[in-house]
């Protein structure tokens, strides 16, 4: 079966600017990213701020126009943003953002807001819409008596449930979640993560889950793509990627997650900071921070190559050993 979503060689360039009157410097926020999301699958996208993961999420939905590359949804080329065809398709692909308060209208009750996509896409009769709202609220764990509440009367976790209910209203095939639990407290975060897990349960919903929280990503995602400075540097099944990361950046990223019971000195602590996307280092963008970097890393951009079944990495130094074993 063809994948639900397939992106090839996506490029998004922003015109950055140095100083008030400075010359425009092109910033390649997303630089040649290809990925696919199968039906019922959850793909995690991880990376630090500035890695382009949020931009990528918007490109996948066509909310932000790509300068290069193609997106295919359900075997069809994604229509141009703003067109009638694109609007109609958006009923099948929805987005959940990090800050639920900013995503909700303060002056509308939550029932009205959950209903809005149904009104916009003219789904069912008014009675059916009412029934659907009640059903959605139940599904995300909101009480029926909360229907008439306004966003400010709810807690952060409840607001995020409203946003998820609204995204699910049109029964979409694809949900793009951009840091949906990052603003929530630990105990509430677990409630929302479990809600998303339940949604995965019946295998009809595909998800792209963008987050910097590796622990949550590992818990939710089937496959994970690691981004660094606009490119995917490693991709693979969640289980294997976390157990056996190949790219030095993935290794450092996983090692940097503080876990109770693990001493500080056993961790790989990266030197330096992620470089400015406007001044991308030559060759492998990670080489200035990489302990294994050699001359080839400074000169040549590594391609994503298979390193294990279903797992690819873009690093000059993982080629030999693993590739022979994989072959």
């Amino acid at each position: 079966m063809s994948p639900l979503l397939e992106a090839n060689d996506l490029v998004r360039v922003y015109a950055g600017r140095k100083g008030l009157f400075g010359k425009a410097v092109p910033v390649r926020a997303v630089d040649g990213v290809s990925l696919r999301v199968n039906r019922g699958e959850t793909l995690g996208i991880v990376g630090e701020s500035g890695s382009g993961k949020s931009t990528l999420g918007r490109l996948l939905l066509g909310v932000d126009p790509a300068q290069g590359g193609t997106v295919q949804f359900d075997g069809q080329q994604l229509p141009e943003a703003g067109t009638q065809a694109w609007r109609a398709l958006r009923a099948r692909m929805q987005m959940v953002y990090q800050d639920p308060l900013a995503a909700l209208d303060r002056r509308l009750t939550i029932a009205t807001q959950i209903r809005e996509p149904l009104d916009i896409h003219r789904v069912g009769t008014p009675e059916q819409r009412e029934a659907r709202v009640a059903e959605l609220m139940r599904a995300v764990g909101l009480r029926p008596d909360q229907a008439g509440r306004y966003p400010h009367e709810l807690s952060g976790g409840q607001r995020q449930r409203v946003v998820i209910a609204r995204a699910l209203a049109t029964d979409p095939d694809l949900l793009v979640c951009d840091e949906p639990v990052s603003a929530l407290d630990v105990s509430i975060q677990a409630q929302v993560v479990n809600l998303l897990r339940e949604l995965q349960g019946d295998g009809r919903l595909s998800m792209v889950f963008i987050s910097h929280d590796l622990k949550v990503v590992r818990n939710l995602c089937d496959r994970v793509a690691v981004m660094y400075l606009g490119r995917i540097v490693e991709e693979g099944p969640s289980e294997e990627l976390f157990a056996n990361p190949q790219h030095p950046y993935t290794q450092a990223l996983i090692s940097s997650v503080p876990e109770p019971g693990r001493a500080l000195d056993s961790r790989v602590i990266l030197q330096g900071e992620p470089p400015n996307p406007a001044r991308r280092p030559s060759g492998c963008a990670f080489h200035p921070r990489c302990a294994r970097a050699t001359d080839i890393c400074r000169g040549q951009v590594p391609d994503l190559i298979p390193v294990a079944p279903g797992q690819t990495a873009a690093c000059h130094h993982v080629t030999g050993a693993r590739a022979t074993r994989a072959a």
Binding site: I188, V193, K215, N219, E239
Partner: peptide, 13 residues
């Protein structure tokens, strides 16, 4: 808190 190691189970909120 989700774990980085071990089986992936539903969280206990």
């Amino acid at each position: 808190i989700p774990r980085l190691h071990g089986p992936r189970t539903p969280l206990v909120p």
